[in-house]
Design a protein around this nucleic acid. Structure first.
Length: 476
DNA sequence: GTACATGATTGACC
DNA sequence: GGTCAATCATGTAC
């Protein structure tokens, strides 16, 4: 809606309101004149201190004045002026008293009905619009508010904080544009409202000299004007909100565009996946942790694991190499973790029995990839006496038994278990160890959709997956 | 431009 | 509500 149309509508409405008042005045005049026999001189009590002798003259006088007032209301100011009665009326000594009485009557009758409208509570829709504009950073002080929030949300959703910077600046620029337009229009409306109010007030003040208009009534009229203009403002706010919504939806659509996760994030997720291959269902906490590490959302982690499980299951062969890579990587970590655990244990328990699996420090001081690989090879081939493990499950059990109860710690158990999973996987992929470690299909998902092999021998089921498991995923 | 990889979405299922 | 499976849509390598 154009501004001129709005103003025209407002003016029309105001004119109608004023017409109404005129009609009311007319009706008031008719009623009061008839009811109080103004023409008979009984409308007003005689002024104090005057007797009845010249009372008739005064009554006649008052009657004349009232008559003039009532008739002048029906005429335009120009007409009144043309008849040169306005001046005489304005100067009449009884005019203020009569005007005040008429104003009082107006207050008590027709106009009081309209008074109730002024007490209307704030429009809830307007409040919603205001709140939204405030939240979006369109209204209120400019501090990046909504756009910053949207940008932050987008960053969180997309994962890569830097990737969306262009979109963010785009969004901010467009929002700023909307904000500017909104404020310009708002200013225009406010200015127009003020001008129109001033104009109407002047008009009413002018009219109040010839017809009874109380200041309260003028105030009321100002209120009506403001309400009219606020309805225009509401339309402006509505349009602005729509614009912001469109902008937002476009921005959200852009956010939905697929972005590849960073290499580091994929690595972290893969590491977790392959180190928990026997049960690749991260708990809520694990998902949160992964999301935090990868700078992505929890739902993105869920999506990733969902996709990964399906795709792994569909084509295990394809993921073999990747699985081996991560398994080896994790196995090294396992070795480190185990070594650290042993060291701690030995430090804490000097009387630890020297079992056949006692690990020498130097065996875990791996500072090169080569030595790590050697260790792994030794572990898998059994060339090292210390790591000649009959099977991975036993390794875990052996490590547990190494220090007895002192290794029942949840953290160590869970950690080692996941590493054992990895080792198992690597081993399972090594043809020569199929016999030693059970079937090669140990981590193949069920044909019926399940993940873990139901017939996995008890000897290779990790202790943490049994009763009293501390593994986070077993809660799934 | 095409093929493949991959993140997201959707509907069914439990 | 979480997961699976199919699918879409986009990114990437060639």
């Amino acid at each position: 809606m154009s501004f001129s149309i709005c103003v025209a509508q407002c003016t029309d409405s105001l004119a109608a309101t004023m017409d109404d008042q005129a009609r009311i005045m007319q009706s008031i005049g008719g009623v009061s004149l008839a009811g109080h026999s103004v023409q008979g001189g009984m409308a007003l009590p005689p002024p104090h201190g005057h007797d009845g002798s010249d009372g008739d003259g005064r009554k006649q006088d008052i009657g004349d004045i009232l008559h003039q007032i009532m008739t002048i209301t029906d005429q335009s100011l120009d007409e009144a002026q043309a008849k040169n009665r306005k001046h005489g009326l304005n100067c009449h000594r009884m005019k203020p008293a009569l005007f005040s009485v008429l104003c009082e009557i107006k207050e008590k009758t027709g106009l009081s009905i309209r008074g109730s409208q002024e007490e209307d509570p704030p429009d809830p829709q307007l409040m919603r619009l205001d709140n939204m504009l405030l939240a979006e950073g369109v209204a209120g002080p400019e501090k990046g508010g909504g756009s910053a929030a949207a940008a932050a949300a987008a960053a969180a959703a997309s994962g890569a904080a830097g990737d969306n910077s262009i979109e963010h600046s785009d969004y901010r620029a467009k929002l700023t544009q909307i904000r500017q337009i909104y404020h310009t229009e708002l200013e225009k409306y406010e200015q127009a409202c003020n001008e129109f109010t001033t104009h109407v007030m002047n008009l009413l003040r002018e009219q109040s000299r010839t017809r009874p208009i109380s200041p309260k009534e003028i105030e009321r009229m100002v209120g009506i004007i403001h309400r009219k203009f606020s309805s225009i403002q509401m339309q402006l706010k509505q349009s602005t909100c729509e614009a912001v919504m469109i902008l937002r939806s476009r921005f959200l659509d852009a956010r939905r565009k697929r972005r590849n996760f960073s290499k580091q994030a994929t690595e972290i997720l893969n590491e977790y996946f392959y180190s928990h291959l026997s049960n690749p269902y991260p708990s809520e906490e694990a998902k949160e942790e992964l999301a935090k590490k990868c700078s992505i959302t929890v739902s993105q982690v869920s999506n990733w694991f969902g996709n990964k499980r399906i795709r792994y299951k569909k084509n295990i062969g394809k993921f073999q190499e990747e699985a081996n890579l991560y398994a080896a990587k994790t196995a090294v970590n396992a070795a480190h973790a185990a070594a650290a655990a042993v060291q701690n244990s030995q430090a804490n328990s000097p009387t630890t029995p020297n079992s056949g699996f006692q690990m020498k420090d130097e065996e875990f001081q791996l500072d090169s990839a080569e030595s790590k690989n050697t260790l792994l090879t030794n572990m898998f081939t059994g060339s090292s006496g210390s790591f000649n493990l009959p099977n991975s499950g036993d390794m875990f059990l052996s490590m547990q038994s190494l220090n007895g109860d002192s290794y029942q710690g949840a953290q160590v158990g869970a950690n080692v278990q996941s590493q054992v999973d990895t080792l198992r996987h690597v081993i399972s992929q090594t043809a020569g160890y199929n016999d030693a470690f059970g079937r090669n299909t140990m981590y193949s998902p069920h044909a019926n959709g399940g993940w873990q092999d139901a017939t996995t021998p008890s000897s290779v089921i990790s202790p943490t997956e049994g009763p009293g498991s501390v593994h986070s995923e077993t809660s799934n």
